[in-house]
Design a protein around this nucleic acid. Structure first.
Lengths: 351, 351
DNA sequence: CTGAAAGCGCTAACAA
DNA sequence: TTGTTAGCGCTTTCAG
């Protein structure tokens, strides 16, 4: 009974109670807490003591309302599986925090009310990063018109909105050239160019190169982006294996790999398989793939947003959208075909 | 000039402007927007039209302040690398969204002001999930005393606060028994039991079993939790390899694996290596490891918080903290030593 | 069914 | 240096 911490459902203390406890006005409390230099060190100490005593935590909604800003940014993802998106959040959150902003995260996943959720989110933040395959351009435009700075990630530009992408088509072409040089002729693309802009770019790069070489179009096999989907596609393919399966991402490639070996086919001897993203498992599977600077993607988004938010109060400067394409890099390993300098180590990989 | 969308830095519309535009009061707008049944379908339509025309997005700070709730939950991580944490967020966000709550994410990483950041976060949310190695118990207690419901993840319980953990010690013991049964005698533990409660549990399980078998204590090699750290530890070990290296997580194990092969040692022939987490790469490296229901961890946290938040308004019901330990499962693959039923497929794995 | 008005907790003039 | 007070945008009684 004695040492029982007062863990009752005490309604959170407000600035008024702190003020009363410290014997000052709420304005003084506010100032003391925000390190204004218009407060005596003595009063500041009293306030701090009161804060301590009452266990006061400022209500950020009140602050946001008064300041006319949220001190928070949002980021919208289609999903959050795999290391890919996590890296983006990491970069985003790190920079946002540095700039004194919290991060709100939203996954549209399979929600039918995605648009509404994003609109709601827009009402909670000062800036918003929106990834590829989440909501339509209409929603993006509507929010932009609201005045909330936006940055589009891995998705085609919209009107005057900032956009950051990673290089897809060109590196996919590079990959395709590499495969053609290996002597591969019959290609399959495992993935859905319709599903996400990134995927469309990768497919386009492949198609272009094959055409340039007078080779047949790749056999298009739309599928989801996980290992299981890859396994299914792979299994179907094994009846009459192509020379190479270019996959939309590493998970799919890994799935195809599994299916191939399960069917008694050897990669790369019987067929080549390539991925995209360079996840950790790709190293261990000896998968030829493409690395992308996901962390930087997120970090850049956070920085750009901060700048736009700053501009809003300052002079005009829209209608001048920023565009950036981050470089990606081909990483060749065993899975695309034997290389002259093959290391016995299954973990090799060269740029 | 004509079709130029009004993308000017229009200050976001407020409920007042919507009301004026629709020729009603702000109260009516509010009601219409919140699907109150005290509004004519006709007026509702007018309001909707006005909302559309003005591109109105409710300011959530205003709403939060008026409602006395944020409709948002927070989650605090030490870091965000690897698939491990991403899965937790995934589960957390999914359920939170289902319950109509946004998710604020905070990474304490290497920030010295972590405690302050968490306090700030606490002022933005209705409930908070705090992971293992982020902030001290003092901070946790202080926030709890504020009245904000808390749930601790992968960390020892504090006072009357809800806690969810995964089974570490017991499964680690299981793993150790398995390794001992393989004939391994000289053990190394790669990881830092001081760094995180989870790690301490895993180490404890190993120590206990070795002692029970009259075997020497494991050689403790504290290290960070990424592949590079594992490689460094592995390289040091290769001068005089132990029988088995039990690693704090898969990344470290994978690093040790790489170092071993680089030194011309074979896993599991020359030494056994085990991990924890069962990341995708573990399958491809044939790594014996332990799976954890991370998604469920996050989902459960979100659900519990929602219940606690509900309780706050309702009757009392604290001092009755919830505790849960989620089961983990040993996944044996090649890396711990050859098994009788070894599949040729490098992707095998059995429970 | 709708409107007027009182706050929610905080910041920022403006006074003192 | 400190206090008073007017909002920030929204919800919600309480009247009508």
């Amino acid at each position: 009974m004695a040492a029982m911490k007062a863990l009752s459902k005490s309604k959170a203390a407000t600035i008024y109670e702190v003020a009363k406890h410290a014997g000052v006005s709420i304005a003084t409390v506010s100032r003391a807490l925000r390190d204004s230099d218009l407060v005596t060190e003595a009063t500041r100490a009293r306030v701090r003591a009161a804060v301590e005593a009452l266990n006061y935590t400022p209500n950020q909604s009140g602050r946001a309302l008064a300041e006319g800003r949220h001190a928070a940014n949002g980021i919208v993802f289609p999903d959050l599986t795999g290391p890919y998106y996590a890296e983006v959040v990491l970069g985003y959150e790190e920079i946002a925090a540095e700039l004194g902003r919290s991060v709100l995260i939203l996954t549209t996943h399979g929600r039918r009310d995605a648009e509404a959720a994003v609109h709601d989110l827009a009402g909670r933040v000062d800036g918003l990063a929106v990834m590829g395959n989440t909501v339509g351009d209409d929603t993006v435009r509507a929010i932009a018109a609201t005045g909330v700075p936006l940055v589009l990630l891995a998705r085609p530009p919209v009107d005057g909105i900032d956009t950051i992408r990673t290089r897809n088509e060109r590196t996919a072409a590079e990959l395709a050239e590499h495969l053609v040089a290996h002597g591969h002729r019959r290609f399959v693309f495992a993935g859905d160019p319709q599903a996400a802009p990134d995927m469309a770019g990768r497919y386009a790069g492949l198609v272009k190169v094959l055409r340039a070489h007078g080779l047949p179009r790749p056999d298009l096999r739309p599928c989801a982006y996980d290992v299981e989907a890859g396994e299914r596609v792979g299994a179907q393919l094994m009846a009459d294996p192509p020379d190479a399966v270019v996959c939309a991402n590493d998970e799919v490639a890994l799935g195809v790999h599994i299916a191939a070996e399960a069917a008694g086919r050897s990669v790369p001897h019987d067929l080549a398989v390539t991925g995209w993203d360079d996840v950790l498992a790709a190293r261990f599977a000896g998968l030829t793939t493409v690395t992308q600077p996901m962390r930087e993607l997120g970090a850049t988004a956070a920085r750009w947003l901060d700048e736009r938010i700053g501009e809003r109060s300052t002079g005009p400067d829209r209608a001048n959208p920023r565009r950036r394409v981050l470089p990606t890099r081909l990483v060749t390993r065993r899975s695309c075909g034997s290389h002259p300098v093959e290391t016995p180590d299954p973990l090799g990989g060269t740029a």
